[in-house]
Every structure is written in C-alpha cells, then in structure tokens.
Design a protein around this nucleic acid. Structure first.
Length: 458
RNA sequence: CGGGGUAUAGCGCAGCCUGGUAGCGCACCUGCUUUGGGAGCAGGGGGUCGCAGGUUCAAAUCCUGCUGCCCCGACCA
C-alpha cells in the first residue's frame, strides 16, 4: 500500500494522490437500482456508492462521492482564486436579525428553515449569504480604495424545498460556492461580473462540461447582467434554446489577464441567442439564428451570476467614501455554483449503459487496477508493483485486490467509471503484458508490463 | 400544497383479492469446485410485514387514522 498525505481543511480536503485497495475501502455498490431513483444520475449515484439518502432531499456523501465533490470544489477554488476572488467561510446558522434588516426574513417564506436557540433567539439555516457578507463588508471596509473586492465561500446551504427530487440535483441541503462582489459603481461592477463570467466558463470547461451562458431574469434590477450557466442534458429541468455558434466558441485560457480589459472576451458569449424557456422569444430566435444552427434542447442550470446593484448595500448601509469624499452604497453582485448539483449534472452528461464515465478532472480515482486472480503470487506481485509505480507518478489508483470473479470486477469497474482500467491476469502475465482499457471508448490495448505507466501518462 | 403511487430481510420483489403465524432472487457467512464480462453445488444466518388503533378464536392479508418515501404539477441553485 502506498501511503498518502492527508492534508485538508474543515469542509473539503485537498485532493491527494494515493493508492487504495478495494478490500480495505468503503465502496458499497449496488447491482440493482433502488426503487426511489428515477433519473439516470440518481440511479448511478446510488448504485456506484456515491451517496446515501437520509431523508427526502438530505444525503450522506460516501467516500467515493466525497472524493468527486472535493475534486469539483478544488477546481472551483482554483478558478475563483485565479479571477481574484478571495475565500472565506461563513456559518450555516445565521441570526434572523440580519435578515430582518434586509427585509428578506418575512419575504423568504417557508423555504427558509427557521430555528430557535435556547435563549429563544430566532435563527435560521442560511439559504444564501448576501446579508451576512454585506454585514462583514460594512464592518471592515470604509474606502473606495479597498475596492474592488470579491469574497466567496463554499458552504452548505439549506432550502426547505416543497418537493426535493432527482437525488442531489434538487436537495434541501446542498453545497454552494457563492461569491459576492463589491464595487464603487455600476461600471466597476460590470468588470467584476465579467471576471466571474470568465471564471465560470473556465470552471465548467475543466469539469468536462460544455456550458452555455443564458440570459436570465434580472427581476426588479433590470439590465442585462444576469446569466444562468446551462449544460445540455436530455433530463434537464428546463427547455433551452440557443445558437450552435455559442457551443463552438473557445473557452478563455488560463493566461487570461483578469486585471485587464474583459468586455471583448465576454462579448461573443453575450451576442448569440441563448435563453431558457422563461426568457425565450421564438420569433427573435428564428430571426436571429439560421435554422441549421438552432438548438432546442433541455438543460441543467449549474451556475447563476447576477448583478443587483445596491439592493442590500442600501438598506444595510454598506457604504464607502468615494474619491469626492461622499459616502455611496457599494454595487454588488453574487455568483453561485452548486457542487452537489454538478455531480449529477456531470453524470447526466457522461454515462452509458454500463455506468458512469467520469471526466478525468473529477474522477474519484484516475486508474482502476484489476487483479484477475487475487491470491495468485504472480498476479499479486505484478499488481503491487504497478500500484506503487502508478501512485509514484501521481496517479490515484484503486486496486481491486478482492477475490471476486473477473466478470463481476469488470462490471463494477465500469459502473464506478474510472477513466482507465489496468487488467492483470495470468494470461497476459504469461506474455509479460497488461491490458489497458479506456472507459469512455471501451478500447482495450495490450502493453508490456513495463510500459503501463508511460501508456497511462502519455 | 393539489393529484397519483408505494411501504414485507441490506437491495429488488412475491404473498394481500379469497385471514391460519412469511417466501423468492441478489447480497452476506461456511465448505468444495471454479476463475477474462455480475460462477456452480451443498449448508447457514438475518424480518416487531412503516406506525397506532379496531374487527376476529386467529391479521402481512379486512376496517379506521397517521407517517415516511417516490412520481406529475405549482415553485426553485
């Protein structure tokens, strides 16, 4: 067994490379589909041992699911940080007082889970954090010189949904990355919006998803600064309409200068037609998009960004002193991504009859190593050598050292969807070879034992 | 919150109509034989039949009430 360091913080571990043996792991997979699961991602998440339902819309994340969640969060963090946002962590429990100040305590309704503490003080499980972040901001920032500022956290949220459904796609307790930007005026806020816009395009691209920004309802604020990021999937919750050209646009690179001019980078994504059913205008769609480029499909919302000006800074008095010496309420925006929703979204977008097909960037392990004959000295030795070699090259390896039969191992390995499988059996060993299978394509190739590592890292 | 389902072993199900003290497959444990796409044989363990009342000599089964969960709708990251 290859030891691995286990650094981590209070909510999400930093993913680390290491080897794990299936005989010692906790991976409760199911051959049959639990009755309650309807859509494919929910079925596969239960069957592949990612989650366990505790109550309607409440889930435990089992080790496999936790690993995927951590990898998703790590990518989100990297792209948030790259764009200049700064991470903090706010609590799940909030005093009702803050929400009374913004006026949303009454407005939020039954979706807000309210509790009372032992001192009879009204509290609530946070469905979002605009009020709290505004309170944090106003307590510390006085001058326009401290702007722009974008603070984010990744934290569990609670919305007591009337009808949770589709597994973790629509749960009552869910993980959310929410960022909040603070700027002196609307122009600066637009620049902040652009930074998040690009960070989101990059984040979803790295998660193996093709995301399409779509104009969303801006509510009473108006303007064009609200977008939902949608990925296409047959089981998507809403109908979406867009121009094929948007799907073909290149995603901004890692070398994007987030302190530079971004309007020109964002502009192409704003120009093409793209709308969810609530915003859809069939006449405009047909007028703007040539028939052969019209896409009418279903989509899953995986992110939402919007600018809301002084909606919270006004009532909550989050003001800074401007260059002219006058106090002005800051212009704010908020930017959400749901990691616990991204897991099923990725599965909806990437699976086959055999199970999940993880994009390499979020796979719980990079490689599944299958011993066809556990207990056979030659197989054991070859597997242990490979296990060490692969882990030493930085690959995360799940070694199936159990004495199950080949067929059962293949089926389980396909179900859990690791990108690559390395199969070691007496047959191949006699020729000094291992078999490598690509989960996505199903392609199998025989390679010399000594060439496995280079074949996988090429 | 309206409509429709459903609840029996860890999972998937039968039994209920026509009451007689619970069964099948998978999984699990033991042994033997097997071993490249969810093995075979033999033996074994595991269930207050969602909960509470009621009818009856007797209730998984019939009656009443409640609850959990799922699906459709409205709502939403």
């Amino acid at each position: 067994m290859v030891p691995c360091a286990r650094p981590g913080d209070c909510i999400n571990r930093i993913p680390t490379e290491c080897a794990m043996r299936l005989s010692r792991y906790f991976l409760p997979t199911l051959k049959e589909t639990p009755r309650e699961a309807e859509i494919v991602s929910h079925r596969l998440m239960l069957r592949a041992g990612l989650v366990r339902q505790e109550a309607a819309g409440i889930y435990s994340w089992l080790p496999f699911g936790k690993k995927v969640l951590d990898k998703i969060c790590a990518i989100i963090r990297e792209e948030q940080d790259r764009s200049g946002a700064i991470e903090l962590l706010m609590p799940t429990l909030q005093p009702a007082e803050l929400w009374m100040e913004s006026g949303r305590y009454e407005a939020y309704g039954a979706e807000m889970l309210r509790v009372t503490d032992r001192h009879e003080r009204p509290m609530l499980y946070g469905p979002t954090n605009e009020e709290m972040i505004t309170a944090i901001f106003r307590s510390a920032v006085r001058s326009y010189k401290n702007l722009p500022l974008n603070l984010y956290h990744i934290q569990w949220k609670v919305r007591d949904e009337v009808r949770p459904r589709f597994g973790t796609m629509r749960s009552r307790e869910f993980l959310m990355k929410d960022a909040y930007s603070f700027d002196l005026d609307a122009d600066a806020a637009r620049a902040a919006y652009n930074r998040m816009f690009i960070a989101y395009l990059r984040t979803f691209d790295r998660l193996g998803l093709k995301s399409i920004p779509m104009r969303a309802d801006t509510g009473p604020i108006g303007g064009d600064l609200s977008h939902e990021f949608i990925i296409l999937a047959d089981t998507g919750e809403s109908a979406v309409f867009c121009d094929q050209a948007l799907l073909d646009l290149p995603v901004p690179g890692a070398d994007t200068d987030f302190r530079g001019e971004l309007d020109s980078i964002v502009a192409p994504f704003l120009s093409g037609y793209a709308a969810t059913e609530e915003m859809h205008d069939q006449a405009a769609f047909e007028a703007e998009v040539p028939q052969e480029r019209r896409i009418a499909a279903r989509g899953i919302e995986v992110g939402h960004i919007f600018y809301f000006g002084t909606k919270y800074s006004d009532p909550m008095k989050a003001v800074v002193t401007g260059p002219d010496g006058a106090d002005v309420p800051v212009h704010m925006g908020s930017y959400g991504i749901g990691p616990t929703r991204l897991v099923p979204a990725i599965i909806e977008a990437s699976h086959d009859d055999g199970g999940i097909i993880w994009p390499a960037s979020v796979a719980p392990f990079d490689v599944g190593l299958i011993s066809m004959r556990a207990g056979d000295p030659a197989c054991d030795a070859a597997c242990e050598t490979l296990e060490t070699e692969l882990a030493n090259t930085g690959l995360d390896v799940l070694y199936d050292d159990t004495d199950a039969r080949g067929g059962a191992k293949f089926a389980q390995m396909d179900l859990i969807g690791l990108p690559k499988q390395v199969i070691i059996g007496p047959k191949g060993l006699a020729a000094g070879e291992a078999e490598i299978k690509d989960r996505a394509t199903g392609e199998r190739t025989m390679v010399p034992l000594g060439g496995v590592v280079s074949a996988l890292t090429a």
